[in-house]
Write a protein that binds this DNA or RNA. Sequence first.
RNA 1: CGGGGUGUAGCGUAGCCCGGUAUCGCGUCUGCUUUGGGAGCAGAAGGUCGUAGGUUCAAAUCCUGCCACCCCGACCA
Length: 490
Amino acid sequence: MAFEKVKRSDNYSEWYNNLVKDADLAEHAAVKGCMIIKPYGYAIWEKMQQQLDKMFKETGHSNAYFPLLIPKSFFEKEEKNAAGFAKECAVVTHYRLKVDENRKIIVDPEAKLEEELIIRPTSEAIIWNTYRSWIQSYRDLPILLNQWANVMRWEMRTRLFLRTSEFLWQEGHTAHATSEEALIETKQMLDIYAEFAETFLGVPVVKGVKTPNETFAGAIETYCIEGLMQDGKALQMGTSHFLGQNFAKAFDVKFQTKEGKLEYVWATSWGVSTRLMGALIMAHSDDEGLVLPPNLAPHQIVIVPIYRTDEEKENVETAAKEIKKKLEANNISVKLDNRDTHKPGFKFAEWELKGVPLRIGIGPRDIQNGTVELARRDTKEKSITSIDGIENTAKVLLNDIQTSIFNRAKVFRDNNIREVNTWEEFQKVLEEKAGFISAHWDGTDITEEKIKQLTKATIRCIPINNPQEEGKCILTGNPSKQRVLFAKAY
RNA sequence: CGGGGUGUAGCGUAGCCCGGUAUCGCGUCUGCUUUGGGAGCAGAAGGUCGUAGGUUCAAAUCCUGCCACCCCGACCA
């Protein structure tokens, strides 16, 4: 129950699981590893979608939709991509059921597909197979598409929002005439993700490049944004891939240049998923529940009326409705909680659990004085403020909440990036403090793998614009030219 | 997929070792009183004990398979 909550300090992962359920965000479905996103959780996702979609369109992208099912043969064409996802693909083998002698529904053995279909784990294959027929000339380029879709990756161990077998995401797939242009696109989308994460989610991120080991299957380079959660673990929040000509070659997508030469097309792909819900929850929430940044909260303000008699109720509700109207006229989303079935104290606790940034309490006393009680979720501060000009007070407060949530997360993140120079220190910091560790690495897969085996820490990324600095690898002592960011990750 | 644990009313649980038809709290429903931080009293409803088999006169309890969830590994957005 909400009353006997597990605290973050007791058991972070239990706290997370409880919060997802108690705040009405999502629950486990009847199907293994899949989730039901509940209306309140989905409303937050919709807010994310709206904003991202806007940002994609502002940078010239359009939405399209490609099918859920991919013929196995398409999938095979880009070998690395296929190998990378092979272990987690669901496969469709039949197209019909029938009722057998025992009145049981069975798969009709007569209805076996000639070629199996893969439920997409990602859509590069089907999209690049399509691009082949769309692209002949440099005049057909660039193609800047995005799709909002579900994908399926048959994960061994799942956690609501962070890793589910089926998840919702957007995947951008662009095609370009030159390598330079594709790289610019890759970095542009990374910047958009970073901006979105910081301004809307209020989660500070490190922009970086993945090591070859961690690069997306089929990509030349994978750029990423990495966030730090309150328990000191890192979370990959978005990736943007420079795919080079890998998919163009695999699917034979060529175009004629101005000079009349035939060349392979250059590609990017980029995505963020419902995992961002997990980031949002883990970065800001506290032992009382969710803490939502105003920019993504389904209700930015909740008004709780307080009354005893019917007469008081009428007066209070009339005033509350006027306030609601005033706020909405200023583009603030407001929920008036006029349920008769619950007392104010209950509502206070419930909306705190659901993370509404600002609460207005209004009762008979306030009506007399022309005031309301304002309570902010992030700091729990309460103040009495005049109804007159409430829209401006609220605007200022909402802005302040948005920035202070971000600042708090940023201070935490910055305090949890530690430069480390010896292997002993590395292990000690990982064990006692977690967070990001900035350390030298000799640049080899073997060392990276070894460190992972020994400590569970992985190289999250090589930060963009990383200062070059001579040093010695934390594990091997071999020469290194720069520090990279290590962390235990989700 | 390997190791450990759990599954009993919407939620959390007792009972299981030692077999005899299920305990308590929260929630739900009805009524009255309440309403500025999770209301009080009175009454009531709600269970094929995860699931499929087996042992037994009798299974929540013992045995086996399966499923789901949690923790720790391997894999991963």
